[in-house]
Nucleic acid binder design. Structure first.
Length: 546
RNA sequence: GCGGCUGUAGUCUAGUGGCAGGACGGGGGCUUCCCAAGCCUCUGGCCCGGGUUCAAAUCCCGGCAGCCGCACCA
């Protein structure tokens, strides 16, 4: 049976990419340990991501706690929206989404239960009686402090850590928009039934960017044009240039296109073929509670079809507005842009108002601020009484009104584990060589977990000595090197092919005569002879390090 | 979470009440001048817990995990 998922996962377990977590105590679904090769590969994928987003695009990378206090997730909507109302059949135990079953657009207990009672809804499986509505929240709950009185949640996304730091970040960027903030870290979701290997995990790694932008400037992004496969919410799949997609209104604004281009560039640069990538727009009813437009980058897989690996959401001002409301902190940004005419503002003089109006002074001051300006005094209404306030009790200032906004957020959110899996699946290749099966992981140099393997052609102490020296030298120059002298040379090549090592350096008897070695290429199996002193530079070049 | 099927060395697999076998892999050795060759040798396993039985990897119950379907999937 030609099941690539099975083959890739078997290889991952066997060669030390992935192991089921807690194995000796019994595995738990939705958790995986990364072995040495998997860890190296994952780190390299993330490092490439940083090269693009943090180093080249200049987004600020921050790192915030994985536990959040309750307020954060009450404000963000995760406490209410990440909760599903459920009912259980008292007879057969099946569990259903209560709101779906009752066909109501509400998650309130009373509304759902009333509907279930009225319509006489019973278990769709066995017709049994249904339980009361109960709630399941996808967030892991914990408590903070020795008394456990402060509720905390393991974050379901890294994004909130960025939003709640918005003011600091904005000042850090010297109060200018737009700017991007990146974060790489773990997120946690207590999935009801995780399956499918790395596709649905309970603890996973996200690489997220929150790109803050003036809502009126979403269309001024410039980007390099590229043809992508787009699947709009209404309409058919189409291969189209991003510039055209923007001009035809398929994409809401050019910032979407800019981020799509970056996502595509990243995915292809780690080795996912461009023709296996598409962007699919969410329908209104499948959108997350915070999003008002969302395009998923999906990668085609053999077993699961198109799999979402990156979510690109226009979160609008949802998050900043929500935190502003909940925290009472003003998160608006003054654009400094003047709006139309000058505006006159009344400033009460408290030092004069106080002695005269005593306890009413405060109310009068408030009324003055909101009062309409008039020459020669202002009439204000306080406690139902009209009072004329002479000019000496206030100052009038003319100011220019500026445009204040809540920035909008464009969020590309990468699932590192899913990306690693789809990469492996596309890299996995089998071919026949001399009647034998050769398994090759065609992962690009620089992303593959091992950079180069070094071998003595045969187990001869002169060759072994030189090989070890070469391996040591390459290691000190930052390469991930594997040294191997066991078994036949062919076996050693195959071993490296299977874990994706792009280059093998072999020391042979010719080396003893002219100080040259061979570099053997994983993909072509061809060899190239180089002098030992040129080896390091040659490899660095092949790995794209210089 | 529900239902069905399944769980034997690192991986793949045979065995179905009576001593758990193989292949590949891995370690050591021999051999070997370039693609999983060969020879010798070692290593290592019945998912966990309970029950039935003189005897359980095998039968029963529970748990855990995997696969398929349903539900769920920000």
């Amino acid at each position: 049976m030609n099941d690539k998922y099975k083959k890739v996962m078997e290889l991952c377990r066997r060669r030390g990419f992935l192991w089921p977590s807690f194995e000796i105590y019994g595995e738990v679904a939705g958790f995986w340990d990364y072995g040495p090769l998997g860890t190296s590969l994952k780190n390299r994928i993330i490092e490439r991501w940083r090269e693009i987003y943090v180093k080249r695009e200049g987004f600020y990378e921050i790192d915030t706690p994985t536990i959040g206090v309750e307020d954060v997730f009450v404000a963000s909507g995760h406490v209410s929206e990440f909760t599903d109302p459920l009912v259980r059949c008292k007879k057969c135990g099946s569990v259903f989404r209560a709101d779906h079953l009752a066909e109501v657009n509400s998650s309130e207990t009373e509304i759902i239960e009333e509907r279930i009672r009225k319509e006489g809804i019973s278990c769709p499986e066995c017709g049994g009686e249904l339980s009361n509505v109960y709630y399941f929240n996808l967030m892991f709950k914990t408590s903070i402090g020795p008394e456990g009185d402060r509720v905390g949640y393991l974050r379901p996304e890294t994004a909130q850590g960025i939003f709640i730091n918005f003011l600091r970040l904005f000042r850090f960027n010297r109060e200018k928009l737009p700017f991007g903030v990146a974060q790489v870290g773990r997120a946690y979701r207590n999935e009801i039934s995780p399956r499918q290997g790395l596709i649905r995990l309970r603890e996973f790694t996200q690489c997220e960017v929150e790109y803050f932008v003036d809502p009126e400037r979403k269309d001024s992004a410039s980007f390099e044009d590229v043809e992508l496969l787009l699947l709009p919410a209404t309409g058919k799949e189409i291969k189209i240039s991003l510039k055209k997609a923007v001009s035809e209104g398929m994409l809401a604004h050019s910032l979407m296109a800019y981020h799509m281009k970056l996502i595509y560039e990243f995915l292809t640069s780690i080795g996912i073929p461009g023709n296996a990538i598409r962007f699919r727009q969410h329908r209104r009813d499948e959108m997350a509670h915070y999003a008002n437009d969302c395009w998923d980058a999906e990668v085609l897989t053999s077993r699961f079809g198109w799999v979402e690996v990156v979510g690109l959401a226009d979160r609008g001002d949802y998050d900043l507005r929500a935190h502003m409301r909940h925290s009472q902190v003003d998160l608006r940004v003054d654009t400094g842009e003047e709006l139309g005419e000058m505006k006159r503002v009344v400033r009460p003089r408290m030092s004069k108002l106080g002695p005269v109006y005593k306890e009413r002074a405060k109310k009068i001051a408030e009324a003055l601020k909101n009062a309409e300006f008039k020459d020669g005094g202002i009439i204000v209404e306080v406690d139902g009484e009209k009072i004329e306030i002479p000019e000496e009790f206030y100052e009038v200032e003319e100011i220019k009104e500026t445009r204040k906004i809540i920035p909008h957020v464009i969020e590309p959110s990468f699932g590192a584990d899913r990306i690693l899996y789809v990469l492996l699946e596309h890299a996995y290749d089998e071919e026949e060589v001399n009647g034998e099966l050769r398994v090759v992981l065609r992962v690009p140099p620089g992303i593959a977990p091992i950079d180069v393997a070094v071998f003595p052609l045969v187990n001869d102490e002169r060759l072994v000595k030189i090989s070890r020296e070469i391996a040591e030298d390459l290691r000190t120059h930052g390469l991930q090197v594997e040294y191997d002298e066991g078994g036949s040379i062919g076996r050693r090549y195959r071993r490296q092919d299977e874990i994706g090592t792009p280059f093998c350096v072999t020391v042979d008897f010719e080396t003893l005569e002219d100080e040259s070695v061979t570099i053997r290429f994983r993909d072509s199996m061809k060899q190239e002879r180089v002098k030992i002193k040129e080896l390091r530079d040659r490899l660095l070049k092949l790995l794209g390090r210089c």
